[in-house]
Simulated scan of single mutants.
Amino acid sequence: MNVGSAVTNLIKILFLLLLILVILIGGIFWFDHLGLINYKRFIGPYERYLPSFMKRGESAVDEPLLIEKEFLVKKEEMLLQKELELELRTQELEAWDLSLKENESKLKEEAVSLEEEKKVLSEKLREYDNYKDNIRRQAEYFTSMPPTAAVERLAKLDDLLAIDILRQIDTNAAEAGRLSVVPYFLSLMDPERAATLQRKMTKVGYDSE
């Protein structure tokens, strides 16, 4: 047997061994697919030494799953970020709503206070109007009385009330186009009281001393 024949036989033997190995691995793939054996148990530890065409295509199958998983993870992160932003926005709106309610409460309190002040002012204006009406009637009453009787009654009044009545008598006389009887009333009064009333009548507001 020459060298060439020996090499040819060796190649045939190697080819047959490789074919047997391929058939064996293919059979293991098939039995693993049928669930009869565990591929990882028999071939898994030695798979890295096999040619690429003999390796199980798990990486090719797993790659889309990994991409999908990464996409889902990013999607989840985006949803969490949006949820956080929504929560922060909700907190801001709740704080704004609380501020509006506090301002509304303050405005209601101010409205109630203003209404109370309005009532007090209205009451004072009504009292003032009643006082003015009373002074007007008193002035007409004193004017219609005999001067001596009018002076006697004026002498019993406090200074401010007497001054308001005398002022109203002056006003009524001016509106009617006649002379006022106030100077005559003062001439009939006690000189000291008349001087006091005249002095106070010249002051704004008729404040008593």
Rank of each mutant, 00 (worst) to 15 (best):
M1I: 06
M1R: 08
N2W: 10
G4D: 10
A6C: 10
V7P: 09
N9A: 15
N9D: 14
K12Q: 11
K12Y: 15
L14W: 15
L17Q: 06
I23D: 02
I23V: 10
G27F: 09
G27H: 02
I28R: 01
F29G: 03
W30F: 09
H33W: 07
G35E: 04
L36R: 11
R41N: 08
F42W: 10
I43P: 01
I43W: 03
G44H: 03
R48Q: 06
Y49R: 00
Y49T: 00
F53P: 00
M54K: 01
R56C: 01
G57L: 03
D62G: 01
L65K: 08
K69T: 07
L72S: 05
V73D: 09
K75P: 04
M78F: 13
L80H: 08
L80S: 11
K82N: 07
E85I: 06
L86V: 05
L88R: 12
L88C: 07
L88V: 10
A95C: 07
A95V: 14
D97L: 14
L98G: 13
L100C: 15
N103L: 15
N103V: 11
L107S: 14
L107M: 14
L107Q: 15
K108I: 14
K108A: 15
K108Q: 15
A111K: 14
A111W: 13
V112P: 13
S113F: 14
E116M: 09
E116Q: 12
K119S: 08
S122L: 07
S122C: 03
E123W: 09
R126H: 09
E127I: 06
E127W: 03
E127H: 09
D129F: 09
N130E: 13
Y131W: 11
Y131T: 00
K132A: 08
N134P: 04
I135M: 04
R136K: 12
Q138S: 11
S144F: 02
P147F: 03
P147N: 10
T148L: 14
A149V: 07
E152C: 04
R153M: 11
L154I: 02
L154N: 02
A155W: 00
L157D: 01
A162T: 00
A162Y: 02
L166S: 00
I169S: 01
N172P: 00
N172G: 03
A173F: 00
G177W: 00
S180E: 01
S180F: 00
P183G: 02
F185V: 00
D190H: 02
D190I: 00
P191I: 00
R193L: 09
R193K: 13
A195E: 04
T196Y: 13
Q198E: 12
Q198S: 15
M201S: 12
T202M: 10
K203T: 10
D207H: 09
E209R: 08
